[in-house]
Design a protein around this nucleic acid. Structure first.
Length: 442
RNA sequence: GUGGAUGUAGUUCAGUGGUAGAGCGCCAGAUUGUGAUUCUGGUUGUCGUGGGUUCAAACCCCAUCAUUCACCCCA
């Protein structure tokens, strides 16, 4: 016998997990479409040169790469953004810009596993391509918010920052050539603390203490600060104070953030957002506004939806430059989180109603009866074979179905049926089909 | 990729070298058109896998696989 094992970091989905996963996917899809975003798909495998084009050393190490049967050097996609760049470059003339698309699909990374972190996982990307308008950034933020609300995930907080504004601050202290290292260190401040960040930058990067402290003070990361960033009216105070000190070429970026936050305030949504000066994002293709979202009672769980603006996504594949802004929900991470919070049930089936089989002679009648419930939008199944009524109840109970209909000779003659709720044990006899539908639909 | 922890019945776990255990679940009967309470009886194991030490290994040693935590990085 062959042992039925599966690879590290890869998973089977049982109905009890797949049902909530599909529910989340459906809700996100309908949210994306309500904003007029269209679905696309791309192949799982691409030429390695396409995927590694913009890769850093990290993606090189994590990518699943091999030779196919035609000796082509191919790789599994590790995100949906790089394939999107290839897609937009290839179909540039067929697309209408601004191009709004969403893409829900698996990606693969050969890294070490952890809870909510796998080698095969689904991403839910949504981007607006070919627009430099700030409104595009605003719309993506609204869509993140709508996405969280659609899946009834409360307590989310969307942290926003701006890479170019950070660079303006770093430039003000004359450290622009060390920008990369400074951003990387600041990104870790919540995890390792302010003192450790200062130590790293002083000892490893040989940056003078005055510059470091100046940057941290400007970003309000020198004294007491919250992991949840800066909220409410203070956002405007802080951004204005930053705007006052940076040189003119950077003030436009402060204005971009100010405008976005003003929009959010005017719409009454500011409480779901924060200006977080320590969010910098590792991926180097981001060039403008960046964001990460957290669940506030699980701050240590990591980001569940993040993204940002990029100036030239297609630069490597096309001479038509395409700017864009987008974000991505980590579907499996979201699912792990909801599972953890026990917000998802243990249902083994999508059925809402089971028709008991009292005698196989009635099978055509059972299915005819089931059709009436299905037409009313009730997911209905019929027990396939006559068996002890105990077992039929157990089947319904284990699958997590609430309603059962019991019918045989008498009932079919009278054309009324017995409906039982197996959660509370109540049974109502002699109901018409319409009455049953009405009762189930509440 | 680096470092730590864990892996025993369907499940949760006990078992520190001498015959593999408990609770829950599951199956059968008391109940052939009404289960989830109770009662009676029963069932379940390559002790993750492969090697080694030993008269003897679930237990000690080595390797390997998986899970998990931290780092790195990220969703």
């Amino acid at each position: 016998m062959i042992e039925p094992k599966i690879l590290k970091g890869f998973r089977d989905y049982l109905p009890e997990t797949m049902i909530p996963k599909k529910n989340i996917m459906r809700k996100l899809e309908s949210t994306f479409e309500s904003f007029g975003f269209s679905p696309i798909d791309t192949p799982a495998l691409e030429y390695t040169e396409i995927l590694l084009g913009k890769g850093s050393g990290e993606t090189d190490k994590q990518i699943y790469r091999f030779k196919d049967h035609g000796d082509r050097d191919v790789s599994l996609r590790f995100d949906l953004t790089v394939p999107l760049a290839r897609f937009v470059s290839l179909h540039y003339n067929e697309l209408v810009f601004p191009f709004k698309r969403y893409h829900i699909a698996p990606v693969w990374r050969g890294e070490n596993t952890q809870k909510g972190r796998y080698r095969e996982f689904f991403q839910c990307d949504f981007d607006i391509l070919g627009s430099n308008a700030l409104t595009a950034d605003y719309e993506i933020l609204l869509l993140i918010m709508a996405g969280f609300e659609s899946i009834e995930c409360e307590n989310f907080l969307i942290n926003i920052n701006h890479r170019k504004l950070l660079n303006g601050i770093i430039d003000h202290f004359g450290l622009l050539d060390k920008s990369q290292n400074i951003l990387q260190a600041i990104d870790k401040i919540y995890k390792i603390g302010k003192d450790e960040v200062v130590k790293i930058l002083m000892e490893e990067e040989k940056i003078d203490a005055a510059g470091i402290h100046g940057i941290l003070k400007t970003l309000r990361l020198d004294g007491d600060f919250s992991k949840e960033g800066i909220k409410g009216d203070e956002i405007f105070t802080v951004l204005h104070s930053i705007k006052d000190i940076i040189s003119d070429e950077y003030t436009v970026y402060a204005d971009e953030l100010l405008t976005i936050f003003q929009y959010l305030q005017d719409a009454g949504n500011l409480h779901k957002f924060a200006y977080n000066p320590a969010i910098t994002r590792g991926l180097d293709y981001y060039t403008g506004i960046v964001f990460e979202s957290f669940i506030t009672d699980r701050m240590n769980f990591g980001s569940v939806c993040s993204g940002g603006r990029y100036d030239n996504l297609t630069g490597l594949y096309s001479k038509n430059p395409v700017a864009g802004v987008g974000a991505s929900f980590g579907l499996d991470r979201l699912l792990a989180l909801l599972e953890d919070k026990e917000q998802i049930g243990k249902k083994q089936t999508v059925s809402e109603l089971i028709i008991f089989n009292m005698n196989n002679d009635f099978i055509p009648l059972y299915y005819k009866l089931a059709d009436q419930f299905k037409n009313a939008g009730i997911k209905t199944e019929v027990i396939l074979d006559k068996q002890k009524i105990n077992n039929q109840f157990k089947y319904a109970e284990r699958k997590g179905v609430t309603w059962v209909v019991i019918a045989a000779d008498e009932e079919f003659k009278a054309n009324t049926f017995n409906l039982k709720n197996i959660i509370d044990g109540t049974e109502t006899k002699a109901l018409t089909v319409e009455e049953i539908i009405h009762t189930i639909k509440g």
